[in-house]
Structure formats: structure tokens, C-alpha cells
Design a protein around this nucleic acid. Structure first.
Lengths: 196, 196
DNA sequence: ATGCAAATATACTAGCGAGTACAACCACAT
DNA sequence: ATGTGGTTGTACTCGCTAGTATATTTGCAT
């Protein structure tokens, strides 16, 4: 139960760091600033993390893995491609909204990640892309989807969903659920193909 | 014709800076590194730019304005909404591919922009969003598009197009034109609406 | 040729902030 | 009570880099 305390402290550091990195950027956030917010001192931080970059890695890892797993689950589960794609986009949208701060930091500060963390996260992205592409291909094979290039469609869907981290603001009229439903609907129209 | 030389030098600085900012990130790129690549010294740079942030502003401004103008032109030109939207997405895609380095730097390093440049670029983004939304609304009014929430559809289209800066690599099988055609096609299917 | 202004280089300053050596503290077992 | 390991604070170092004071050069007008 001392481990739990450790985890709790680490997470508190990551909470504060996420917010500061998000608001001001990684480079403009000093370790001291993080310590100050937590009402502790620098060595407290360094006791729990090896370096500033390690904190960044912690922040960036918070959402990425999860999204990849969503896609893999969708690609290999039961149901029609159409149905699975809709559900995937819906849940992905919710997840992106939830983790928008971590995603924003990740995409912005990728260059500051230590090599190891960078490779790990790149791996998740590849898994996500692979799973999504596979799902789209299943839909094409089943004649449910009509697509030119599957890779382009895959990136289009990924893009429109991921982009949410950039524009979503919680104080909008729109609820996360409404957006998720719309996104799913738009995606399904998109893959259904020809409309002229 | 001395002005032309000035412009030329400024642009050379921006060329190098774009590439270095893109490859290594803004913070990890020193002015000296830029000078070195150009085979000049630091004061040369400072003679042409007031600060490092001013260089960043120059880099970030390279594509943004243009994209906003594309959208405004599309919103207020002749032709059916459907036709204009397709053409807009097509040309936007090409432009995003062309200026992907500048866009990547812009989205990553926004926090390092001086207030003035930040406001200016935010203005372009607002104009873009406004124009795109207007165009979509025209399509809805003309019963050409079927959309739930226009704002969500707008961001979806913006996202899938802008996201290109993140995944496009010139050494792919896909040409820019093919991608642009696909994007336009996907967008039109998307806005055409219900498919079930 | 020569003087003036614009352009570029040499050689510095100054401050910030990541990371650390070491000291102090605290909880618990014995 | 006391020693021991895990934890946090005090007080530094040290390198890096944005920015600059000043010298030098270059090109052009006359």
C-alpha cells in the first residue's frame, strides 16, 4: 500500500504537468513551475521521475494506448463492418474528447519525447492504423463500403476524429455524445460511397 | 531592386528555419544552427529578423492565409454548393500537402508565437471556419447536403483535410492529385447524408 | 578615389532552468 | 529510544543560447 501512494503521487505530478504543458507548452514549463503548483520542491519531482522528458512520456501515454485497443477490438469483433465502424468512431470520439489534453501535448511535443517512448507510441499508432484499415477493407469486401483508396479513407476518418482535440471546448452547446453520434453518422455516409 | 535581395535573404532564412523547426522542433533549434546552415553568422539573422519568434511567425504564415482565402472564394463564388465544396476540398488538399511543413510547425509551435502573429493567424482560421460553415449551410438550404450539426460537419471536413500534414509523405505510391480527388469524393459522400 | 550607409562579422553578456550533492526528516521495526 | 531506509528540502552548478555592443567590410554615389 506504499506503492499506491507512489502511484498517486506520480499521477498528481502528471495531472499538473499535463495542464501546464497544455497551457504553456513543454519548453516553457519549468520543473519548478510544476513543483510550485504541487507545493513541493524540485527534488520531489526528480525522486519520482528521472527527467523532464520522462514526465512528458507519462503525459503522452495517457490516451494513446487506449485508442489503439479500441480499433483492434473493432476490427476483430462480431457484427457487420458498418455497425462496428460506427461504434468505433463513436467511442473513439468520446475518448479523444476525454483525453484531448494528453493528445494535444503528444502531437505538439512529440519531438521532445525520449526515443523509447516515441517508439512505443509510434507502435500504437501503427496498430491503430492497421486495425482501422483492416476494418475498412472488410467493409469493402462485404460490399458495404465503396471506397477509392482504403488508405486515404482510413486517414480521413482518423483525421476527422483525432482533430477534435484541436477544436473541442467543453463550454459548447454541443455535448460529447451529440458530437460522437454526428461523427459516426458522417463516417458511415462517407464510406457508403457514391452519391451523384 | 535592393528590396528584392532583402526579400530573397529573408526567404532563405525562412526556408532553412522551416526545415529545422520541422525536423527538430522550435525550441531545439538554435539561431546559430540556422546561421550555420546558411553559412552566415548570428547577427546576419538578427539584421533581418527582430527575434527568434519573428522567424517562427514568418514560417507559420506561409500557408495559413492562403487556405482561408480559398474557403472564402468558394463560399462566395458561382456554382452549386456541391460543386464548390468538391473543388474547395480538392484545392485545399493540394495546398495542405504543399505547405505541410509550415502547417506542422504552426500547429506544433503555436504557443511560441508572439501575440500579434498568433492573433493574426487565429483570424485566418476564424475566417476559414466561417466560410466553410457558410458553404455547408448553403448546401443544406439547397437540399443538396443532409447534415446533423453543421459545425460538427465543418470541423470534420477541416480535420480530415488538415490532418494530411501529419501523414502525407512524398515518397508514397499515392500522388497528391489522387489524394485530392479521393478527399473531395469522400467529402461529397459524407455531406450527401443518410445511407442506411 | 573617397566618403557614407547598409550589411555582416567578432566577441561578448546575462539569465534561465535542468539536473544534483548533500542535509534533514519521518515512519516504522526492534 | 534508536537505527535504518525511504522520502523531501536546501542550496547549489553548469551549460546553453537568445540577444547585443562594437568593429569591419562592402557597395554605391559622386
Amino acid at each position: 500500500m506504499r506503492d499506491e501512494l507512489h502511484d498517486y503521487k506520480r499521477n498528481r505530478i502528471l495531472d499538473i504537468a499535463s495542464q501546464l504543458f497544455y497551457d504553456a507548452g513543454y519548453s516553457k514549463t519549468s520543473i519548478e513551475a510544476i513543483a510550485e503548483q504541487l507545493r513541493v520542491t524540485k527534488p520531489f519531482i526528480y525522486y519520482h521521475f528521472d527527467s523532464k522528458a520522462a514526465i512528458l512520456a507519462g503525459v503522452c501515454g495517457r490516451t494513446t494506448a487506449f485508442v489503439a485497443e479500441l480499433a483492434e477490438a473493432a476490427a476483430s469483433s462480431q457484427g457487420s463492418p458498418r455497425q462496428r465502424l460506427g461504434e468505433l468512431v463513436r467511442s473513439m470520439t468520446l475518448r479523444v474528447i476525454e483525453g484531448r489534453i494528453y493528445l494535444a501535448v503528444y502531437f505538439r511535443e512529440e519531438k521532445h519525447l525520449p526515443e523509447k517512448a516515441h517508439a512505443e507510441l509510434a507502435g500504437y499508432r501503427r496498430r491503430f492504423d492497421g486495425a482501422m484499415r483492416q476494418l475498412l477493407q472488410q467493409g469493402v469486401d462485404a460490399k458495404e463500403f465503396k471506397l477509392g483508396n482504403v488508405a486515404v479513407a482510413e486517414q480521413a476518418i482518423t483525421g476527422m476524429t483525432t482533430w477534435l482535440f484541436n477544436w473541442y471546448r467543453p463550454d459548447r452547446r454541443l455535448s460529447a455524445e451529440e458530437i460522437a453520434d454526428d461523427m459516426a453518422q458522417l463516417t458511415l455516409s462517407m464510406v457508403a460511397g457514391r452519391s451523384d
